[in-house]
Structure formats: structure tokens, C-alpha cells
Amino acid sequence: MNATHQPATAAGTFRLGGDLPITRLGLGTMQMTGPGVWGDPKDPDRAVRVLRRAVELGVNFIDTADSYGPAVAEPLVKKALYPYPDDLVIATKAGLTRSGPDRWHPVGRPEYLRQQAEMSLRHLGMDHIDLFQLHRIDPKVPLEEQLGELQLLQQEGKIRHIGLSEVSVEDLEAALRTVPIVSVQNLFNLADRTAEPLLEYATHHAIGFIPWFPLATGKLSRDDGPLAEPARQHGVSPSQLALAWLLKRSPALLPIPGTSSVEHLEENVRAAEIVLPEAVFDAMTHAA
């Protein structure tokens, strides 16, 4: 692929909060850790190469979290990309603690969220975070207290915008009564559209919707998966077809496919250039 070609930009842009433009096809960093999202990756230098190549390809939206590792993905982002390009938007999260591989526990106490925001600033080498997301709503802590602390951090200039992760429409509406919310991050892909009501709400209100597991943890990208035959018919890969469907589904969708491979990254990013005919889009929508 041409070193100066930036295929990600073909996905178009979305303005987070109405004032922060990002390329709609971003990069997630959860896979840049060890098994079970625990510990260091097998090859940290490879992760650094992926991050740097993503920016070269026009990606300017990187999604990470304090709990990826924990405290592994954020330092890798800094190692790869600091000093950051002026247009790079880094989103991170707090609100999930870790007790081992594949183990996640919500903690939304205000003092903990503040501590983790300060740690993310340090790990990323930033003086403010463009998008800070509550990784999970802690049912043991009033939502107003969790969001109130993020609002204080926002007023102090330490975070610019606030987002939520894995919420319902009702959760989002409750949050909006306390603070402005510019994004939601929920499980959503062609094979799992249970968050469709939230997507419709987000689209209508110009709230960014960041779908995690956009390739259904590989289910949609397999050579023998449900998209294999239509992908062959159109001369693209199954993963490219799945991402192209997301980009066409709603202008608010901001896919962040993660990978630890430069080759897979380049394949994913080229999905931004696919013009999906209405008939193919409709067929995929109804067949899945």
C-alpha cells in the first residue's frame, strides 16, 4: 500500500460533541495486550508498529482504556505516537477494575474515577483527554455521583468530552440529565444488533456510537463465516464487508476494529473505500 495513501479518510468524519472531528474508522487497542486482556503483549514492538501504521493510513481516532492490561495499552499508545499529531483524538475509559485475565468488575466511586483519570493522563503523556468514557455504570454508586466527578474533571480542563460504555437508552437519557454525553460504546455488529434502539437514539441526537467487537470477535471475518460468499462475489474480505456495512448503517457509527497485525490493520482500513450498493447492504441486513 502506498505510504502516502490514507484510505481511512474515505470513511468520512464525525464531530464528537459537535466540535471534535474524527475519521469514522478508528482503531481499538484491547488486542494490544496479553491473553485475556491481561499483561503485556507477546510482541510490544509489533503493537507499536500497528499504531504508527494506523496513523499513516489516516486513522486519527484511537480508543483505549486504563483496564486494558491493565495499564498496558495506554503506555503503548504513548510509546508509539508521542508527541501526538495535532489532529489525533485519543479516547480512554475508567470504571472497570481487573482481578485477572478476562475478569472485569465495575467500580464507579468518584475518588477512584478521578485517580484513574489522573493515571491515564500520566500514562498517555497528555494534559487533557479528548474523550473520557465511563467504562461501566457501577450499580452500587448513584449515577449522578459517577458523572458528577467526570463533570468536575471536565470543568478543571482535564477531560474535554464525556462518553458512556455498554448502556441502554434509559441509561443514556438519565446521564444526559446530569452532563452532556457525546458518545456511547456498546456491543454492535452485523451479527448482534441488540443495541439497535440505542443506535437509533444516538443517530437522531448526533451522539457518536462506537461499536465494540465490530467483527463479532472474528466470527464475521472467517473465510468460512456468513460473509465469506458475498465477500468473494464482491472481491473483498469478509471483515471489509462487515466494516463497510457498519459505516453505511449510520453516520454516527464509529467502528474501532482492533488488531495486533499490520497486515490485518491495512485490510480493515481499506474497508473505508468500499462503496456498498443498496441491494448488497439490504441483503446483508436481512440475511444476518
Score class of each variant (00 low, 15 high):
W104L: 14
A288Q: 12
A279S: 15
V59L: 04
A174M: 06
N60Q: 11
T29F: 02
I162G: 00
R232V: 13
A252L: 07
G235V: 13
D127E: 15
L220C: 08
D138E: 10
L164E: 02
G26K: 03
I129C: 00
M284T: 03
E200I: 07
P35L: 12
L124W: 02
A175P: 09
G148P: 00
N60A: 04
L150N: 01
E111I: 01
D86P: 06
L143N: 01
P211D: 08
E56T: 14
D192R: 13
P142E: 05
G218T: 11
A3R: 14
A11Y: 09
D66I: 01
A94H: 03
T97E: 13
L81R: 11
L198R: 01
I90A: 01
E56P: 07
L241Y: 02
E200V: 13
D282F: 06
R249G: 05
P197Q: 10
I210S: 01
I62T: 08
I159G: 00
Q146W: 04
G18V: 11
R177Q: 15
M1A: 14
T64I: 07
V236G: 07
L265H: 02
A287L: 09
D192E: 14
A279M: 02
A65E: 03
P180E: 07
H123W: 01
L121R: 04
I256G: 06
R249M: 07
E196R: 10
N2R: 13
G17E: 08
D138R: 09
P211A: 08
E196Y: 01
A191V: 03
W104A: 08
P101D: 10
F209I: 11
K78T: 12
H123V: 00
Q155Y: 02
K78E: 14
P257R: 09
L276N: 04
I207M: 13
D282T: 15
L27W: 04
R136K: 14
S221T: 10
R193W: 04
H135L: 04
P101Y: 07
L152W: 03
L20I: 11
K78H: 13
A195F: 03
P110S: 07
G69S: 10
W212F: 14
L121E: 06
S99I: 08
P197L: 08
M30P: 03
G36D: 04
A242S: 13
V182L: 00
V107I: 12
Y112D: 11
A287K: 14
R53C: 10
L152H: 12
P35F: 14
K78S: 14
V182D: 00
T23N: 15
A10N: 07
T259W: 05
L88Q: 07
Q115V: 06
A206F: 06
A272C: 11
H128F: 08
Q185M: 08
M32P: 05
V184W: 08
A47R: 05
V72N: 05
V59H: 05
L164N: 00
I210V: 15
D43H: 08
N2K: 11
H205M: 10
